[in-house]
C-alpha cells in the first residue's frame, strides 16, 4: 500500500481547526497560550459559531491573539476586556462574546472590570490564563505570583509582608451570583487538554443560552518568564502552582 492511499480524508483522525489561521504564532515554544487558542478554535468550529463570535483580546502576550483565530476581534486596553464584552453582548444579544486575559490583565489592573462584569452576570465567557507572571513585559511580579517566587520585580522572591498575597481571584468570582460556571483547568497533558475542551464547550453553550457569566481559569506556564525549560515548567507548575490553585469546578449551575 502506498502512503498516498492512506492520506485520505476518511482516514484523518486529527486536523488543524479551520478557525485557526496559518499565521505562525509568536508565543515562546512550550507556552500554554498556543494550546488554549487551539482548543478554543476547535470549540468554535464544532459549535459552528464562527460567524457570531466576537473575541476581546487583552494586553499581555495574547495581545496578538487576533492573528490566530479567524473571527472578528476587538483589542481592549489593559484590563478592560470585560467592560468591552459587556457592551458587545448587550448590543448584540444573539452573538457569542468572550474575553481572553492574563493574570496581570485580569487580576491586577482589570480587577474591577472582571468583578463587575461577573457580578452583573454578563452573558459572556472569560478565559483567564494564570501563569503567575507578567510574561509580555519581561517577567515581572503578578498578583498571582506565588509566595517566594522570584520575578524581575521580586528578585528575592515574593515577600507577602512587602508584596501582599497571591490572589485567588477565581475563588472570589465563584462567589458572585452573576456567574453560572466557574472552573479551574490546565493544559499540560493530553488528558488536561481534553478536560479543558469539555469545560470550554460547556462554557460556550452556557453563554449562547445566556445563562450568566462563565469563567475558565487555565493554570499555565511561562517558561521564558520562569526561566525554565518547557518540561521543567510543567513539573514546577504541578508541584507549586496546583497546591495554591487547585484544579476543578468551583461552580456549575
Amino acid at each position: 500500500m502506498d502512503v498516498k492511499d492512506i492520506i485520505k480524508k476518511e482516514n484523518f483522525v486529527y486536523g488543524k481547526s479551520k478557525v485557526l489561521t496559518d499565521n505562525p504564532m509568536h508565543y515562546c515554544p512550550g507556552c500554554t497560550h498556543g494550546v488554549v487558542h487551539k482548543v478554543l478554535a476547535e470549540v468554535i468550529e464544532e459549535l459552528d459559531i464562527q460567524d457570531k463570535t466576537i473575541g476581546v483580546s487583552p494586553v499581555g502576550c495574547a495581545v496578538l491573539a487576533y492573528n490566530y483565530l479567524d473571527i472578528d476581534w476587538h483589542e481592549a486596553a489593559h484590563g478592560r476586556a470585560p467592560a468591552l464584552a459587556s457592551a458587545i453582548n448587550r448590543l448584540y444579544p444573539d452573538k457569542f462574546v468572550f474575553t481572553y486575559q492574563g493574570d496581570g490583565d485580569l487580576a491586577s489592573i482589570g480587577a474591577a472590570e472582571i468583578m463587575h462584569a461577573c457580578n452583573r452576570g454578563e452573558k459572556q465567557l472569560t478565559i483567564f490564563i494564570n501563569n503567575a507572571i507578567y510574561g509580555m513585559t519581561g517577567g515581572q511580579m503578578a498578583p498571582t505570583t506565588l509566595e517566594g517566587m522570584k520575578t524581575a520585580t521580586s528578585p528575592y522572591g515574593r515577600n507577602v509582608a512587602l508584596h501582599g498575597y497571591p490572589l485567588q481571584i477565581t475563588e472570589l468570582i465563584a462567589q458572585l451570583p452573576g456567574t453560572c460556571y466557574v472552573t479551574r483547568q490546565s493544559a499540560h497533558t493530553p488528558g488536561a487538554v481534553r478536560k479543558l475542551k469539555q469545560a470550554m464547550l460547556k462554557a460556550v453553550k452556557n453563554t449562547l443560552e445566556r445563562k450568566g457569566t462563565s469563567f475558565i481559569e487555565v493554570v499555565a506556564t511561562c517558561n521564558s518568564g520562569w526561566k525554565q525549560s518547557p518540561v521543567d515548567s510543567n513539573k514546577w507548575m504541578v508541584e507549586n502552582m496546583f497546591p495554591k490553585y487547585p484544579l476543578g469546578d468551583m461552580k456549575d449551575i
Binding site: 481592549a76 459587556s86 448587550r90 448590543l91
Partner: peptide
C-alpha cells in the same frame, strides 16, 4: 436602546469603545 450604569468612567468609556467597534 441599551442604557447601563457602569462601575466606573473607565469601564463606561471602554464599553463605548466596544460598542463603537461593533
Amino acid at each position: 436602546m441599551v442604557v447601563l450604569q457602569a462601575e466606573s468612567e473607565i469601564a463606561s468609556i471602554n464599553m463605548v469603545y466596544a460598542g463603537a467597534g461593533c
